[in-house]
Write a protein that binds this DNA or RNA. Structure first.
Lengths: 220, 220
DNA sequence: ATGGCAAACGGACAAGGTGTCCACTTAGCC
DNA sequence: GGCTAAGTGGACACCTTGTCCGTTTGCCAT
């Protein structure tokens, strides 16, 4: 899993939107890629490690490129070579954690993987995402600034998954519903529910699971 | 309606969270308030007018205090006297438009106002909000930066309304569901659906209305 | 009507962030 | 072991942010 960090630069996560599934088990051989130099690799690792600290320590929305570079002990231009802005660093860090869940959704056992009714799968997906949010909220919040989370490769993956569930369930016009169904997973929203309203993870999770089952009810 | 602009400074919308309903028909007499000077009033109007232009012209997330001040023809400190940041200017502008809908939700005819089943009222609310978003998307996007939209007085109002509907319908634990039910109305999300995915207002609206009815189905 | 005073104004300032550029360093291949 | 290009990091010019403070101006009492 830590090997995954080496796959592509920060900006690459944007390109992943096209080849979502194929990317899951992509071999580590680089077809024509000019190969990364060892010092660049080392710097990238330092940057990611330092950034993870920073996002956890302070308000994730206030983390700057300048701060990350200083914390990682590299120059500003070196940082810019790998990432265009702070949120793309957070996206790269999140990617690693999200990839495990992505695999479970496709190949794992039900109800997360195939085999369960759509409503149950959606409920399980919500709970898994909630767990991810709970454990990596600072990163999720940091990833949201800028062009927002809708353009990340991960979001594209969730869209494909939810669309499958909606179609499975026989929804007439699934496309506008996809993002509606994903909207309760907004990091900002979760942060508000947990730390402003003081709701427990369990309470939010129960509501979300009920919500999923109600949305994709068998007795349509 | 244009008289409403004079009620309180920008920061005041934050305080509204407490007295949501009473504020709806608050008389214009100021109990102990020290009274606003005429030149301050004039400047405030100039600021709001200039800001509305700016938010519509460029990416609402890139509007700065500096730009607003220059466009309004006032000094920076004058602007800061009324508003702490650009998003609060957008909030103040939005407030005016939202207040009409707030009145309709309480006193208006069904299905927006009281009298219709909860599912129908939620569907009508969604459609009305969508209409608001469609007409004032730049402002809505501009209002989202910073501490996010969850802290605005308007959001507090929507929460109260939706909670009423959920309780009416007999939902067990309504509180975590409130913000889940409101999440599809995120301006960022609507912008993505409309201008990135190219979905029509009608299609999104139909999905949202179906979604509302499914969520609060009579045959619970 | 006029003079005093507090509210309001707006330019200026220091601090800090952003991208980019370019001279230097260094890894990797011949 | 030297060549070459990728990689590095400090510096630069520009912009934004809040705040401070000397000046102006509306409002009220006289």
């Amino acid at each position: 899993m830590s090997d995954d960090e080496q796959r592509g630069r920060g900006a690459a996560s944007v390109h992943r939107v096209g080849g979502l599934l194929g990317d899951l088990q992509a071999a580590d051989d680089q077809p024509v890629a000019p190969r990364r130099r060892a010092d660049a690799e080392r710097n990238r690792a330092q940057i990611l490690a330092a950034a993870e600290q920073l996002f956890a320590q302070q308000d994730p929305r206030t983390v700057t490129m300048d701060r990350i570079a200083k914390a990682a002990g590299v120059g500003r231009a070196t940082l810019y070579r790998s990432f265009p802005d702070p949120s793309s660093v957070a996206v790269a860090l999140l990617d690693e954690h999200e990839r495990r869940l992505q695999g479970q959704l496709i190949y794992g056992p039900p109800p997360l993987g195939p085999g369960a009714p759509a409503g149950e799968r959606l409920a399980a997906f919500y709970l898994a995402m909630l767990d991810l949010l709970e454990r990596h909220l600072p990163l999720a919040l940091g990833a949201e600034t800028g062009p927002a989370r809708f353009r990340t490769g991960a979001y594209g993956f969730w869209r494909v998954h939810v669309r499958t569930l909606l179609v499975d369930h026989g929804i007439q016009d699934p496309d506008p519903l996809i993002d509606i169904a994903l909207s309760p997973l907004s990091p900002e929203l979760y942060q508000f529910q947990r730390h402003e309203l003081g709701l427990s993870t369990e309470r939010v999770g129960r509501s979300l699971a009920d919500f999923a089952r109600q949305l994709l009810r068998s007795g349509e």
